[in-house]
Design a protein around this nucleic acid. Structure first.
Lengths: 228, 228
DNA sequence: TACCTTATAGTCAATTTGACCATAAATATG
DNA sequence: CATATTTATGGTCAAATTGACTATAAGGTA
């Protein structure tokens, strides 16, 4: 098939890129340089090219922003209210992504005034229906994190159990009991202990673990479902 | 805002309408009357009008087929591969819907040769990427039915615990222990017993229950989550 | 060395689960 | 009409899991 390389201009993609740092969830926003909403922070997004799949478009957009290409990503939802965008009818597909701290740096080409991380608690008023989209994404994250082992995508490749607990506490907005949390996670057999320990802490160093995707896939085949 | 009343022709909706009868899941398909795939059974779908929201378009399409307007419905996903549709680039939004047996009759205007229910196990090869979309929908149903009380949307308003169990057995493709299933569901406090009993059975009649959405909403506010 | 601080291990009662068995209520049959 | 048959509904019991804690270990720092 051979399509001209132009855009489908009624259909856009908006990215909901979450990060986790200092015990808080972050979201990546960009500053609009032109148009009606100039100067406003908004969800990063773009147009789908005529000869690329919707998923490929999302991958491309996420890569352009973060420089990372194997990022955790999934469709969130389509937002298609008639008046969500001014002047013309634009339907957008929200893409939900989670990035690890090691990929936190923005891609070359972006400066802090172009694109930046915002604590979820400090997100300003966004243009269009972007606040609504963000709320839907947060709700999705809260739900999904309890039913599938995706939280690891917000942590470094190697992490301590305490870091993992802090993540869940931040996402679910609740406190968890340390020994119980630990016991539950360990019994699932999803974490592979590495020989390494935490460094540069002024107290006993915790063991570092990795999420063991192999084990998870095996368990899932046998009917296991992650629940927290 | 005032838009011309034409279509956004790069974007369609396809509906995945599930039903449940005789212990088996059904899916509603329509027969194409024109075009390349003439005579083939396919997912029912249509175009989004320029002046209606995407959700409204889905509601309209579902109503046109089933005659029902308060049907359980949610977005499934966007399917946007470049070559999913012949000749031109069409991106489609899958809508997932569940209908109760009392709404099983097709809307006037459709005959059995236009639109019909197919057992999931007897679905023919469908055009475009419709089999892929259907598979995604089945997977979604299997997952969601365990984490949210949506199964009731496939049963009559009043149902027996055994009917409910049969539904879960069909969806999850597994056998469940009757007394345990019963105990678990009852303890959730989501089912309101009606005074009525099953009729026309040649054995002890079972009590009929209704799903109590009020209770569920109250419980959910207090942090309850449905798990099966 | 004493003393923080956090990691990690263990205890115990209460609850939930899984695998059953028992009884009840209705129709069907001889 | 008694008895079999069928499904509903109610229990039991050991095993596993959870929730709320307490205890000890392993570093650092004063």
């Amino acid at each position: 098939m051979n399509f001209p390389d132009n855009n489908i201009d009624a259909l856009s993609i908006d990215c909901l890129i979450f990060g986790f740092k200092k015990g808080e969830l972050d979201i990546l926003l960009v500053q609009h340089g032109e148009g009606i909403s100039k100067g406003k922070w908004a969800l990063p997004g773009g147009w789908i090219r005529y000869n690329e799949s919707v998923n490929d478009a999302a991958i491309r957009l996420l890569h352009d922003l973060t420089g990372v290409s194997n990022i955790y990503m999934e469709q969130l939802a389509v937002f298609g209210d008639v008046d969500r965008y001014p002047q013309k009818r634009v339907i957008t597909i929200g893409y939900f992504a989670l990035v690890k701290p090691e990929n936190y740096k923005l891609h070359a080409g972006f400066t802090a005034s172009d694109a930046n991380w915002f604590k979820l608690s400090e997100v300003p008023a966004l243009p269009y229906d972007h606040n609504k989209i963000l709320n839907a994404a947060v709700k999705h994250l809260k739900h999904k994190v309890r039913h599938e082992p995706i939280g690891f995508n917000l942590l470094p490749r190697k992490f301590t159990l305490h870091q993992l607990q802090e993540l869940y506490e931040a996402v679910l907005e609740t406190k968890l009991d340390k020994p119980n949390f630990r016991r539950k996670l360990m019994k699932m057999n999803l974490l592979a202990a590495s020989k390494e320990k935490q460094k540069d802490v002024s107290h006993r160093a915790a063991s570092l673990y990795k999420f063991d995707k192999r084990s998870y896939d095996r368990l899932k085949d046998r009917g296991f479902t992650f629940e927290l």
